[in-house]
Design a binder for these strands. Structure first.
Lengths: 128, 128
DNA sequence: GCAGATTAACTACTTCTGTAGTAGATTGAA
DNA sequence: TTCAATCTACTACAGAAGTAGTTAATCTGC
């Protein structure tokens, strides 16, 4: 599979790797806000599972600790999430937009930016 | 909990109920496209679980069959999905929009419609 | 060189999801 | 009235996800 499905916790771990670059399990664990910090071995287990899924890879070893880095991009992982959501909505983004608006997360600026992006794409396609 | 999390298959079952109104397990099962139709008892199990989650309720009994109806609205369920997704993106819809565009699911019309909706809301808020 | 700290690797257990079989009750038709 | 079809209700099981303990190897400072 090109891009395996990542769970919520797995994504949070990937997030650390995307933000900070290669990290040890300890560094990943400590970057969780103290209140909701999972046990060291919990993070360790998740990192190993991500490794099996080829979402992270070992790069080197510093003293006793293995250093891991993301093997899939944030873009690709996020894209996967959106595609999954779209499949629930039958590929239509209309209802998604409606909910984003309802929840107050979508601003006029977001929309105008999206419009510009779409216009740009349309223009490029014409000239191909 | 006001709205329990629904899994993919649970959502597909809710979809049948939302579309067709009250149904028996048999009707739900048969409304799945033949190719990917789960066994009768699989649907039955899911419906019972939805019942435990209070997402569906029994309305009546026709002969031997129980008739179930949705106890949560499609709006609420979809809203829950979006909110979960938003939490992954830190509440920002910008990246979500970007991916929708990239995947080709978002059209200019969708965007213009969204813009109108937002303008309308802004107008209403001013006059309150 | 050794002891205490740190880590990797393995194992374990729970909940959720998807999947489905079985047993016993209920119907409806002949 | 009896029997086959249909249902409900219960049970089972595998895989993913979340959580974490244990054991044995490995460092590192003294």
């Amino acid at each position: 599979m090109p891009l395996p499905k990542l769970s919520k916790l797995e994504l949070q771990i990937m997030e650390v790797l995307w933000q900070r670059g290669p990290c040890s399990v300890r560094e990943i664990q400590e970057s969780f806000p103290a209140r909701k910090r999972p046990a060291y071995t919990t993070v360790q287990t998740m990192v190993y599972r991500l490794e099996v899924k080829k979402a992270v890879r070992r790069t080197k070893k510093i003293a006793t600790a293995l250093i891991f880095e993301a093997a899939v991009s944030r873009e690709a992982a996020e894209r996967r999430l959106i595609d999954d959501l779209l499949s629930v909505f039958g590929g239509k983004s209309r209802p998604i937009m409606a909910h984003l608006i309802e929840s107050g997360a979508l601003t006029l600026e977001d929309v105008r930016e999206a419009e510009q992006a779409l216009l740009k794409i349309a223009g490029e396609e014409k000239s191909e």
